[in-house]
Design a protein around this nucleic acid. Sequence first.
DNA 1: TTTAATCCCGAGTATTTCCGTCGGTTTTCT
DNA 2: AGAAAACCGACGGAAATACTCGGGATTAAA
Lengths: 150, 150
Amino acid sequence: MKISTRGEYGVRAMFDLALHYGQGPIPLKMIAERQEISEPYLEQLMGALRKAGLVSSVRGAQGGYLLANPPHKTTIGDIIRTLEGPIAPMECVEPGEESTCNQYKLCATRVLWTKLRDSMEEVLDNTTLEMLCHEAMRLKAQDDSFMYHI
Amino acid sequence: MKISTRGEYGVRAMFDLALHYGQGPIPLKMIAERQEISEPYLEQLMGALRKAGLVSSVRGAQGGYLLANPPHKTTIGDIIRTLEGPIAPMECVEPGEESTCNQYKLCATRVLWTKLRDSMEEVLDNTTLEMLCHEAMRLKAQDDSFMYHI
DNA sequence: TTTAATCCCGAGTATTTCCGTCGGTTTTCT
DNA sequence: AGAAAACCGACGGAAATACTCGGGATTAAA
């Protein structure tokens, strides 16, 4: 019931790009260093995110990656689905999987998994990168004020 | 982001026991057959559920397993935690894991994972075996009435 | 009292998924 | 030209998953 490193790193990388939105292309190396992610591994993930249209890239020297859309347009759900596949606690509640289970009409547990899936999607689809940025600023301010009082 | 077969089979087995609650011990073989689960594998899972106090067992001929508590007392969360460990999309939001991440106070994504965890727990801890039984009856009735109209 | 049903337990194995590495190619700025 | 970067596909090791297996202990029933 865990999100894999693909999802985790993907979110962190996208969050990093969001924090630097509007500053031109950010080289992979920078993201990897700041987020402490293996560079060649992150490269794979960025490739997937680019193919999904979530980031765009600039090749050659001084190139790098940037968000394809402003931070409030990309949700965590977009990122997770791209890197981990459908958000679903069980195969039988993935989109377009209605008929695989032979007795899906009578399956009581399926109702449960559907509820669980919906509650997960509710959170992930309603959290944008912009919201994470705001949250980060809030935490930073809190921390600064704490330091001040010492 | 999937529940493993341990959790899935565990829920199905417990649901099976709930449907037969009050009918004395149910042999593993019955549960395995009805739920189409490998018998020796399910045995492992039942052992864990017994140690966790969710089922009790009767040894010897005519023995079997039964719910340790009435169906409305056992939640899906209880079962999943027993068989899969803490309900958490990331290690850093497992109970008692506050200090492992060196900069947890400043982590914006951690707030997100916490929200996700809470929404998952909300569903799983508020669904009981009894509710699944009622759901099953509802689906059955619906199906019967559909048959009747043909 | 024997037999058969059933739970109990721990070790072993096969498969898959995950996580990451590596080498080379192409593009573009300076 | 040279260096900085993105792009690409294949490969490999480690860990988790999903079982299997063999034997032992307990108890009801014949």
